[in-house]
Simulated assay, not measured.
Amino acid sequence: FKTPISTISLAAQMLKDPAVGKSPQMFQHISGVINDETKRLRFQVEKVLQMSMFDRQKATLKMKEIEANELIAGVINTFTLKVERYNGKITSNLEAVDPVIFADEMHITNVIFNLMDNAVKYKKPEEDLELKVRTWNESGKLMISIQDNGIGIKKENLKKIFEKFYRVHTGNLHDVKGFGLGLAYVKKIITDHKGTIRAESDLNVGTKFIIALPLLKNN
């Protein structure tokens, strides 16, 4: 809930800026973001009870045909506001020639959001955030990578990051709050989609998450 709420809040603050009112294009963009995020919030309310069954069963997925490049471009468009607030930037190379997957739109959207949100949480305080998002096809799969230039993860912690309630020790980084469910949720959703996720990271260089999902035609 916190991600869409903070995005809506930021967008609402921006609407107060008189300069925004003078730019119909900017106004349109911000109101679009508010609209999209409100929709996402509504979806998530419906899923609360379902996710309370986290341990007991597979999440109930509403599967449909999805054009992943479009979905990811939409997430990037919404997330740009948050990244720019930290003087950061997102670059994307959505190069998957076959981007069609059979998936739950809301959960896959959440996965991409969570991974981008992680990059914001674990950015280096002294460096502007750089996010790189890429899609491509490899051996009959859709591949998605989300790479940042953040604080990185020690090798011994890397294998634990997808465990529930595991939180990488970040020293004095007190702004990282929450229960450490983010990556456990991401892993569960990708696994329930018969996909895989792994992380590559170098301390003080950054982290890269790589997702592989089966294509619709191979499902």
Rank of each mutant, 00 (worst) to 15 (best):
V45C: 11
K22N: 10
G152H: 03
K208Q: 12
A68P: 05
I144G: 00
Q50R: 11
D36C: 07
N204D: 15
F54L: 14
I8K: 04
H174P: 06
K64W: 08
T60G: 11
E65I: 03
M26S: 11
I101W: 01
M14W: 00
V97C: 05
F179R: 07
T191F: 09
A212Y: 06
E156F: 05
R40T: 15
D175F: 08
F113M: 05
A96K: 00
E163L: 14
A68Q: 04
I161L: 05
E163G: 13
A96G: 01
I72A: 04
K47G: 05
K160Y: 03
H193A: 10
I210S: 05
Q50A: 12
K2G: 11
K159D: 13
K155T: 04
V120H: 08
D36S: 12
N77H: 12
N77R: 15
N218G: 02
F102C: 08
R134S: 05
E163I: 07
L131R: 01
G206N: 02
G206A: 08
G152L: 02
D175N: 07
N137M: 12
T7A: 12
E65L: 02
M53K: 11
M53S: 10
N172L: 15
A12Y: 12
N110G: 04
K89L: 03
L129G: 03
N87G: 09
E126L: 14
K188N: 10
H29C: 07
G150P: 06
N87H: 09
N218P: 03
K160M: 06
T170E: 10
Q25M: 06
V48Q: 08
S52G: 08
T109V: 01
K194S: 15
F102K: 14
T170Q: 09
Q50C: 11
G152T: 07
R167V: 14
N219R: 15
E130T: 06
T78H: 02
M116P: 00
D117F: 12
A199C: 14
N172Y: 14
